[in-house]
Design a protein around this nucleic acid. Structure first.
Length: 429
RNA sequence: AGAGGGAUGGCGGAGUGGUCGAACGCGGCGGUCUUGAAAACCGUUGUACCGUAAGGUACCGGGGGUUCGAAUCCCUCUCCCUCUGCCA
């Protein structure tokens, strides 16, 4: 979340940033927030004064008791009751002011970086790069949801949606034979590539508590997006960003620790209550999917260079997979709540003839760090760090594009060379 | 899951009602000494909020209570350890 001090010192900048993100009632919300902030500070000042008096009295009584001046001590005690009453009232008021302020503060999204384009929806995103040639597909080319039915060398489909529906429900496919093997190959490939780029691998839990959900910004607002295990009060992660970034919740790092670079593979779970229809067939949108995620924690002045490096990393993966892709700089209205700057990667899906989002790389600046209390020490000062993350990559849509783009005249699918050592076959038929 | 024992600053570890933000040791940082290093010695060393500052307030796992006053007493929750049970 944003820092109150920052808003206080940069009121106009804050309002302008919120507007760019299409946050409603930016001005009135900021005004209310500053009013609550003032109230909080005034209340605290008054409370502190009363407590100081109270502490002084207690010491005085302590001294008198030691000297055995019982009567004087009793007299002093009598004077404390008014202070006590007052402090109780003020303490209650302070708590109310703090929670009211907090409630407003968590409503505010992160402010967009100055390079974020103006705009309301996905149509206003700016394409910063389009790379790779869209393939010429053979006659009778099929979309991936048809390809997976017959391919894979198993008696049934290589990815079986009906089976998944039986076991669990819609959106939980079962990968079989070469389908399963190819998943594992991609995960290993992505992890190895990240390791080569200096990311330290972690295997985090895939259930997290509410504190973690709050730290990265899924809670309190986006809880509908996550599966929730009521009996234990835990959430299934929608992305590895949550557990990996929360590894550093309540942590004060030193400069030598920075930058922190992690990569992790996890399944991801999303309830995605939203649209279901023609555009979300097959692998296009799932409740459970696999993703390799990269996370960086770095000094504020280094975060945009880190963002660029992460973009380059994701780019290199798509190049190695020989997939045509484009990079979008998201506009203010299409960006995530917690992000300051986001690049989306979209892969070309040949048979569907459309772009599919397969990675999202974001700099959150200090927005998450503030919630996480993630700081570092420099020259005696403690200050917030910047957090970043990106998919590298999300598997299902990569697989969809790969199957569609690489299908050949004989109906088989060619596996990109980089994956062959991992999966052990060159084609799926 | 049952029984018992714990939770104190970066770490170890004192502290069972008063001047305790907390002894002491280790570690870290700065300095003296040294050609340099080590050793020794001296100093320093938590976080947050309020305040221009001086300074004030809060925090000894979390929350609540008793008291003029709580790290210390009471209640409650969480977590950890040991033994028993179960288990991939």
């Amino acid at each position: 979340m944003l820092q109150t001090n920052f808003i206080r010192d940069n009121q106009e900048l804050t309002v302008a940033g919120l507007r760019k993100k299409h946050f409603r009632e930016a001005e009135s919300t900021v005004e209310l927030l500053l009013k609550l902030d003032r109230l909080r500070r005034e209340t605290q000042q008054e409370l502190d004064t009363v407590l100081a008096q109270s502490n002084a009295k207690a010491k005085e009584i302590g001294g008198l008791m030691k000297q055995g001046k019982k009567e004087e001590a009793e007299a002093a005690k009598a004077e404390t009751s008014a202070l006590k009453e007052r402090s109780k009232v003020l303490d209650e008021q302070l708590k109310q002011a703090e929670s009211a302020l907090f409630e407003e503060l968590v409503k505010l999204p992160n402010l967009p970086h100055e390079s974020v384009p103006e705009g309301r929806s996905a149509e206003d995103n700016v394409t910063v790069l389009e790379q790779g040639e869209k393939p010429e597909l053979p006659a009778g080319a099929k979309p991936h949801w048809e390809l997976i039915q017959s391919l894979g060398g198993t008696s049934g489909a290589m990815i079986d949606f009906e089976l998944g529906t039986k076991i669990t429900g819609a959106g939980f496919p079962v990968y079989k034979g070469k389908g399963a093997r190819l998943q594992r190959a991609m995960i290993s490939f992505f992890l190895d590539e990240a390791a080569r780029a200096g990311y330290v691998e972690v295997q985090p839990p895939i259930l997290v508590n509410a504190d973690s959900g709050f730290g990265t910004g899924q809670l309190p607002d986006k809880e509908g997006q996550m599966y929730y295990a009521t009996a234990d009060d835990l959430y299934l992660i929608p992305t590895a960003e949550v557990p990996i970034t929360n590894l550093y919740r309540d942590v004060i790092l030193t400069e030598n620790d920075l930058p922190v670079k992690h990569v992790g593979y996890t399944p991801c779970f999303r309830r995605e209550a939203g649209s279901w229809g023609a555009h979300v067939r097959g692998l296009n949108r799932l409740h459970q999917f696999d993703k390799v995620e990269i996370v960086q924690i770095c000094k504020p002045e280094a975060s945009y260079a880190a963002l660029d490096a992460m973009v380059e990393h994701v780019k290199s993966l798509l190049e190695k997979l020989e997939l045509p892709f484009r990079i979008l700089r998201l506009c203010g209205g299409d960006m995530g709540f917690t992000s300051a700057l986001t690049y989306d990667f979209e892969v070309w899906s040949g048979a569907q003839a459309r772009w599919l989002e397969c990675s999202s790389v974001s700099n959150f600046e200090s927005y998450q760090a503030n919630r996480l209390k993630l700081r570092y020490k420099t020259e005696g000062k403690t200050q917030l760090l910047h957090t970043l993350n990106g998919s590298a990559l999300a598997l299902p849509r990569i697989l969809a594009a790969l199957l569609e783009n690489n299908q050949q005249a004989d109906g088989s699918v060619r596996i990109p060379a980089v994956l062959v050592p991992y999966c052990g076959f060159e084609t799926i038929d």
